[in-house]
Design a protein around this nucleic acid. Structure first.
Lengths: 145, 145
DNA sequence: ATAGAATCGTTTGTATACGAACAATCTTCC
DNA sequence: GGAAGATTGTTCGTATACAAACGATTCTAT
């Protein structure tokens, strides 16, 4: 089996291209925020900043993160003192996650940089193509049937 | 700070959309191959199938994987008996990775399914839009400056 | 020939991701 | 009011991903 005997080209598969694009994004993210925070950790801070204190599970759903994954992300944020957790008095199952003052401070510092990350990642494209790409990605970002 | 006081929308950021699209792809991949192999493990098998025995590092470069990452992927493939490793007699630094018969067999079984994964992932789009998406992704998949 | 640079691969530490099993809690519904 | 079922969050196991430090080996320039 070799390249002559099959027509499969890894480099043309959507999975490979998504992975590459994501890699590029991570590098840019990391550089722009100067390694001060990891991407998903920032996503949690941003979401908390826009909707306020929330249960961990809802947070996960809003950010498209697995319950086990949010757990880890929130845990790491807590270890850095950026968020805190408390039980919901009305329902002891819930754990309300909220920004600390430190977390709010960092978020306010980083928010202005966030748009820059998308712009830089899309830099090889013109404005129209960039919009098209975002639109097409939105259309395939729904859950599979 | 809340949604009224800042114009940042996480859901419109390229990183979030790439992540979501990648998630969708993983789910489809996993279902189509019936959990018989992980995505990057399949990528290694496919690459070995098309170019033959290769050093681990070159394999990584061709697949856009970090040296440490390929190491792990190859290790797991080896544990399953799908590839084997030997030293390059000409240069003792290199470790040549090659498919075993079992690995070749599995690859031949799965290759026909591979195209299906891309097709299903792109299913929400028409043929033209799908081509456009692949093209746009290719253009932002290069390494950042 | 040899010191210094470069390359290859490994290991360690950190950060996602997700399936599966589980305890605690809450809701439903008889 | 109590059993059955649903929901929330945790833990465990596995699979990427990548930075950084490292040992072994090879190359390069003198």
């Amino acid at each position: 089996m070799n390249s002559e005997t099959n027509g499969y080209s890894l480099e043309d598969q959507i999975g490979f291209l998504l992975r590459r694009a994501h890699q590029r994004h991570r590098v840019i993210f990391s550089r722009v925020v100067e390694q001060r925070i990891a991407p998903q950790q920032f996503a949690v801070l941003a979401k908390l900043g826009s909707i306020g204190p929330t249960s961990q599970n809802l947070l996960g759903r809003l950010l498209a993160m697995d319950a086990a994954t949010v757990q880890g992300v929130v845990e790491r944020l807590k270890a850095q003192g950026l968020v805190q957790r408390r039980r919901d008095p009305a329902d002891a199952r819930f754990r309300i996650v909220e920004l600390t003052d430190t977390g709010t401070g960092l978020l306010e510092e980083l928010l202005p940089l966030a748009g820059e990350i998308t712009v830089e990642t899309l830099a090889p494209l013109g404005a129209d193509d960039a919009d098209t790409l975002l639109d097409l990605l939105r259309r395939i970002s729904s859950d599979p049937q």
